[in-house]
Design a binder for these strands. Structure first.
Lengths: 201, 201
DNA sequence: CACAAGTCTTGATATATATCAAAAAATTCA
DNA sequence: TGAATTTTTTGATATATATCAAGACTTGTG
């Protein structure tokens, strides 16, 4: 992999720390501990970050690149559950939070750069710096609300409305992700999404 | 409403504290603070716990009774988002976590009894007892995973499979909730659910 | 207890979206 | 670059589920 200068690393961590500090102003001691016990990892385009059935033992902070999470149906069909990118926390929610075998696969859609934090290190940080639970709670709340919105759209909106909502809320996903993955995320076939986009529907 | 003896209250709180302690062993000081700054509230069957457009300023712990959360579509149709009952935390997720006007309505389906905790009190507890963020984080994670499972079922399963999954995972909801509400939660019409249940599909 | 109001079922038909198949376009890589 | 592969589009047909309408149940209430 590439090596990074200290200045480059500083910039990467500044990114993540800005997010944390905005939720709860953290002491230099916590930030130094985080920096000391995490590292920068690189995933090649198309590579698997987390395999199906493995336990998600790392939490990633996205620095560059798009990642998708997907399930595999019994018939082999892949169902995309979500997309994560720069500034996002990247995990298999179920697996990371419960430390059980993941139902999801995490796959890098681009060459992807992340800060990687091991669960045991994170738990140690939660223990040693209880105020960091504030950050963990706020981030969980944030992603929970996003998930709720998506579940809601699936019940309330038809295919075209779900697509329009995604375009409105996440225009970058539309441009950066192959249409087939977007279709399975929206719960529709690739053909239907193609027709929606072409104005047939 | 009714008055409760100290012994009855003890039993109610024991319920909630057991949940908390199981996530993180809390000091008597926190528990005493919680008990002192919360109260038991009663909602009559069919009454509205939280109106649409109001800010959800209380977090409830369910002691008795079923509650449903629903949205109202532009055309007036009610779409049930979830059911909460004894042992559950009852809030409008979006409204409580962001302290913005609720998109959801919370409605008591039964005569319902809850422990009520004001958001400002909760925030004070988070500040004064940072370890309580651990509990808040764990609970948020738990409900987040549940929400993920539901969003997933909506994308992956057809109507019959979604119903079967609900029966398998929450048999009590089927027996305690009118079928029309269950249908809108599953994202299908009441007629279709009726046919699924009768074995037509 | 009976009637009103709401809820659930059943049937007929309509519609959104899936599926299958093949061509067209885009992307990858040797 | 150009052939091979993958992705996307388009067309024809099939299907799951919605909608509309009417009747049968339930339930709550005076």
């Amino acid at each position: 992999m590439e090596q990074f200068s200290e200045a480059q690393r500083d910039a990467m961590y500044a990114n993540m720390f800005a997010l944390f500090n905005q939720l709860y102003p953290l002491s230099p001691a916590v930030l130094a501990t985080i920096r000391r016990h995490t590292n920068i990892v690189f995933f090649k385009r198309r590579s698997i970050i987390l395999e199906h059935g493995k336990i998600c033992r790392n939490c990633y902070f996205g620095l560059k690149g798009m990642v998708r999470a997907y399930y595999i149906k019994d018939d082999g069909q892949e169902i995309t559950s979500w997309f994560m990118k720069e500034g996002d926390i990247i995990i298999s929610v179920q697996s990371f939070f419960t430390q059980t075998e993941s139902h999801e696969v995490l796959e890098a859609l681009d060459d992807t750069l992340c800060i990687s934090l091991r669960i045991d290190v994170l738990e140690e940080i939660y223990r040693k710096f209880p105020e960091f639970n504030f950050v963990g709670r706020k981030l969980t709340e944030h992603y929970y609300i996003q998930m709720e919105n998506r579940a809601f759209s699936l019940r309330m909106d038809d295919a075209r409305q779900r697509y329009d909502r995604l375009v409105a809320q996440h225009p970058d996903i539309i441009t950066r992700v192959p249409i087939g993955y977007i279709a399975s995320y929206l719960g529709i076939s690739a053909e239907t999404l193609s027709r929606i986009r072409s104005g047939t529907y």
